[in-house]
Design a binder for these strands. Structure first.
Lengths: 202, 202
DNA sequence: GCGTTACGAGTCTGACCCGTATCGTATTGC
DNA sequence: GCAATACGATACGGGTCAGACTCGTAACGC
């Protein structure tokens, strides 16, 4: 997708090879600046170059512009998929819900909120976002299906609505800080249990 | 909060009074530009003035800067609180959930996503956001409490978690377009029913 | 060593914008 | 009519930034 992919095959390189350290420094600088509070569009190539200790040309040699750089930088944040143990449906759901918005990179929580706007205005970034979350949705869908097969969950539930039910509360809390009084730590467990049991008198 | 409040008392005005049409045109232009896809920080006073058919000085005569103008402009969007009928707890919840992210102004859904980032970086805007949603949370809390009193809802549920459960799915759908396959129209009903009944086999 | 390419640093042009000031004009109270 | 204040328009100095370019230098294959 970016120029960097061409590094893989590496047919032959006449001159001095590109510095891998520069690649890394540029990406890191981008994420650092975002995590420090810069918004996406306030981010300038000049600032990134300065922060990375790199000439502007070094950036333009690798990426076409800010958008392409950002696309590569944000890819770093998606982290790895959580792997449900497969024993208890409830525990698996707690694990998956707890993993929402939680990434390997500690900067991710700071950066994620500012993506919310971008996702709804740029269709490329919307696609990137969907590409990241759809495998996670799939994972949760499979756990729910397993629950139905095992007879733990009812067969007539709407899987998509149920996933929204499990994901929504965690997401608005992590991304929007919707309710400052809500404890994020114990939220996954409480959400899963509430969804499982319902709130109605039976 | 802004200079405009001083218009209220109006002690005495020597010269030509300020044009109310200009006030309106500036606010409208601001909201229009935001709704058309401009982000908050890409929004410039010059663009607003041009769109409103107004000189820049006319804007600076009223507001100290872009932030003050935005604060006033966004206040227009919050709309009125939904009024639950008070008959059926389920119907009231469906009404409240359906009202999430739904404002009188048709531009609101387009503008809301780009506020997500601002809310998490500027504490002033975070407060403004909390001030807007906390009465709505209170409304929902009262409906839930009524449900408990009436014996429709269990007494041992966590109100705050339940509210997150009801609000989250709707919010991520309206603001983040979390799952494009999910029908926004019928979502409130389905969310409320799922939360009421739970998904577990009983 | 030589051609080639990359490097950090810096320069340059052309946008765009802010916030202020200044036009000539319009609208108010007196 | 006259002072006062508003209006839209425009010009201004100061600032930031995009991208393309230029340095002198560094690292590679041959």
């Amino acid at each position: 997708m970016s120029d960097m992919t061409s590094t893989a095959d590496a047919p032959r390189s006449p001159g001095r090879p590109r510095s891998i350290r520069a690649d890394e420094a540029i990406i890191e600088a981008t994420l650092d600046l975002l995590a420090e509070g810069s918004t996406i569009e306030a981010l300038s190539i000049e600032a990134i170059a300065a922060r990375a200790g790199v000439g502007k040309a070094t950036i333009y040699r690798r990426w076409a512009g800010k958008d392409a750089l950002l696309l590569d930088a944000l890819r770093r944040l998606k982290g790895v998929l959580a792997q449900p143990a497969g024993h208890s449906v409830r525990d698996d759901l707690v694990l998956l819900v707890g993993a929402i918005g939680k990434n390997v990179d500690p900067r991710a929580p700071k950066i994620m909120p500012c993506l919310a706007s971008a996702v709804n205005r740029d269709s490329d970034q919307f696609q990137l976002y969907q590409n990241i979350i759809s495998p996670r949705r799939q994972l949760m869908r499979e756990v729910l299906r397993r629950g139905i097969d095992e007879g733990v969950l009812r067969g007539d539930i709407d899987l998509e609505v149920t996933m929204a039910l499990l994901t929504g509360p965690m997401l608005i809390q992590r991304v929007l800080q919707w309710n400052p009084d809500l404890d994020e730590q114990t939220l996954p467990e409480r959400v899963v249990d509430a969804v499982l049991q319902g709130i109605q008198v039976r």
